[in-house]
């Protein structure tokens, strides 16, 4: 069953244009000029119930605009969308009872109050009874490891702690789907990991579907099963994360340590030698062109191996490559 179904969704913004300087400002005052910006251009995709879907793209790709249309915040310029059976911009209030949203750049917790007061207020907003709200807060406090944070004014929490509370707040009313717009923005490695763990747990335990937009390929790698990559308001890639890796992560990085010294002129056909040390080498090759087996055979023939590491390049590089390909295609 689909939780999201989007067909030919479009959003065009009118943007005022003005020449530089005072002259431009005066001209713009009497004769303003506008141009159209297509933030989302004929976007179509589907998302299964309970799925973990990554929606990624560079700045200005149309990620946030799409999320805002799917939550009913923005009206589209064209196209259709159905979220949990509702048309978001028509049934905004009904839909809001069923979904949770987190905008990384726009906090929903009351800044001067402890998080627990916002949680209690959200209980009223989502029409939960007081006992149910309390029970749910206790559960989320444990799941998000935030028991000690609940009574501290939000302004005194670190960004990571605050984001944990933000995501937890969006889950208070047991939504079937949460839409997370850049939830890891500005967070350090540990805070990101904490948020990812908690989201994964809620997906596994409560079957909450997650649509996640992010700049961070790490979020995608850690959380999502499927990915949609957008650029200039259009989908440039859509597949399982595992397929994305298989198709694009053909370059392998190999680091080997030998028991004895390595020959200075160490080389293998079709392999780029990045570094030759006294006891080790670092090399890179394209597995689509040079067989892994032959490379390993050469490595093994060169001496007694003490340690070997074979790794893929970071996902960021892959995504950058996909953007580049999309640009060339244009």
């Amino acid at each position: 069953m689909n939780s999201i179904k989007v067909k030919n969704l479009q959003k065009t913004f009118q943007t005022k244009r003005k020449a530089a300087g005072l002259g431009g400002s005066v001209r713009s005052l009497f004769k303003p000029e506008y141009s159209s910006v297509e933030a989302v251009n004929n976007l179509s995709f589907e998302m299964e119930a309970g799925e973990l879907l990554g929606f990624i793209g560079p700045n200005g790709a149309g990620k946030s605009t799409t999320i805002k249309m799917l939550t009913g915040i923005l009206h589209p310029s064209g196209g259709e969308a159905s979220v949990l059976g509702f048309t978001p911009w028509v049934d905004r209030q009904k839909l809001a009872f069923q979904i949770g949203t987190v905008f990384g750049q726009r906090p929903q917790l009351w800044y001067h109050l402890p998080a627990i007061d916002t949680f209690t207020l959200f209980g009223k907003i989502y029409e939960l009874d007081d006992r149910e709200t309390k029970k749910r807060i206790d559960f989320l406090a444990e799941a998000f490891e935030m028991k000690d944070l609940l009574e501290v004014p939000v302004r005194k929490l670190s960004l990571g702690q605050r984001m944990r509370c933000e995501v937890a707040a969006s889950l208070l009313h047991r939504p079937k789907l949460i839409l997370l717009d850049e939830p890891s923005i500005g967070l350090d490695v540990v805070a990101k990991q904490n948020i990812r763990d908690a989201i994964r747990r809620m997906n596994q335990e409560e079957g909450v579907g997650v649509l996640l937009t992010s700049h961070d390929a790490g979020d995608l790698e850690a959380l999502c099963k499927r990915v949609i990559i957008v650029n200039h308001g259009q989908i440039v890639y859509e597949d399982k994360v595992s397929n994305l890796k298989r198709k694009f992560l053909t370059t392998k990085l190999v680091e080997v340590r030998y028991a004895e010294g390595v020959a200075k002129d160490f080389s293998i056909d079709g392999v780029e030698i990045l570094k030759v040390g006294h006891y080790g080498v670092k090399l890179k090759f394209d597995a689509a062109k040079t067989s892994v087996e032959s490379v390993l055979a050469h490595i093994s023939a060169a001496g007694d191996i003490v340690d070997i590491t074979i790794s893929d390049p970071p996902l960021e590089e892959v995504i950058a490559k996909i953007y580049e390909q999309a640009k060339e295609y244009e």
């Binding site: 805002k68 939550t71 009913g72 915040i73 905004r92 209030q93 009904k94 809001a96 009872f97 949203t101 905008f103 726009r106 929903q108 907003i125 989502y126 029409e127």
Partner: peptide, 12 residues
């Protein structure tokens, strides 16, 4: 653009 928060909530 700060109506986003209120628009994402299930109240008028």
């Amino acid at each position: 653009g700060r109506l986003d928060y209120y628009l994402s909530m299930p109240k008028p």
